[in-house]
Simulated assay, not measured.
Amino acid sequence: MDTVNPPLPDGYSAVPAGKIANVVTCLEMLEKPPAKPARPGEQGLTIERWDRPDLGEYRALFRAIGEEWMWFSRLVMPDEELRAILSHPEVHVYGLTDGGRRIGLLELDFRTEGECELAFFGVVTDAIGQGAGRMLMNAAIDKAWARPIRRFWVHTCHFDHPGALSFYQRSGFRPYAFMVEVTDDPRLTGQMRRDAALHVPLIEPR
């Protein structure tokens, strides 16, 4: 038995008010899949390496993409910790731009030898369904497998866009594990809008 992370008991487990419980699905690909075709909507979009991004600009894009899907980890992370990650030579950050506007974020983490984590991936709401996500995923797969890796992996959760899990699977990732994450609700700590992610009930302590 894993004594550090013991399994949850069967049945229901109570979550205290003020907390959120998130079911996470871990997925991986062990070889590069065939490329998916581009769509006409991808024309005019560009993907550019974003070296040592300014924390304010990075968090603004992170929030624009993920606030409705309960992306909050980089919003609550201390500045120095986030800066250390984003400036690490084995963490590659890219922005997807439409004209002069950043509409997508791609972050590849090669810090574990032989692996690449798709740490963050997403596009702003008005770009969903327009081909931008497929363009960004094709680039993610190409850039990850251009390195000598054995495994490319990602995790998503039930708070995320309802099409996220199937998109990852269509892209060649295969589920291999579930996890449950329990954290403070960032809408109650002031780190996210109280009316963000309305599909996730907000339960305040009495």
Rank of each mutant, 00 (worst) to 15 (best):
M1K: 05
M1C: 03
D2M: 01
T3Q: 12
N5M: 09
D10T: 02
Y12I: 00
S13G: 00
A14V: 00
P16Y: 00
P16G: 05
N22K: 13
V23I: 14
M29E: 12
L30Y: 09
E31G: 12
K32H: 13
A38L: 12
G44S: 10
T46L: 10
R49H: 10
W50Q: 07
R52D: 15
P53Y: 03
R59C: 04
A60Y: 02
L61P: 04
F62Q: 06
R63A: 13
R63C: 06
R63Y: 11
I65L: 09
I65K: 06
E67V: 04
M70C: 07
W71M: 03
R74T: 03
M77G: 02
P78S: 09
P78Q: 11
D79M: 06
L82G: 10
R83L: 10
H88G: 12
V91P: 05
H92A: 10
Y94N: 03
D98G: 01
D98Y: 04
G100R: 10
R101D: 12
R101K: 15
D109G: 07
F110M: 05
R111C: 07
T112A: 15
T112V: 13
T112H: 14
E113N: 10
C116K: 06
L118S: 07
A119E: 14
A119C: 10
F121P: 00
F121T: 00
F121G: 01
G122E: 04
G122C: 06
V123G: 05
V123T: 14
V124S: 08
T125A: 15
A127Y: 06
I128D: 03
Q130M: 09
R134H: 04
M137P: 05
A140V: 01
D142P: 05
A144H: 04
A146T: 01
R147W: 06
P148H: 09
P148Y: 08
I149G: 09
F152E: 08
F152V: 06
V154W: 03
F159V: 00
H161W: 07
H161F: 05
G163K: 12
L165E: 14
S166C: 02
S166A: 14
F167S: 11
R174S: 13
V180T: 15
E181Y: 07
E181D: 12
V182P: 07
V182K: 07
D184S: 10
P186N: 12
R187N: 09
L188T: 09
G190C: 12
A197H: 05
P201I: 02
P201V: 03
E204G: 07
E204K: 09
P205G: 11
R206E: 15
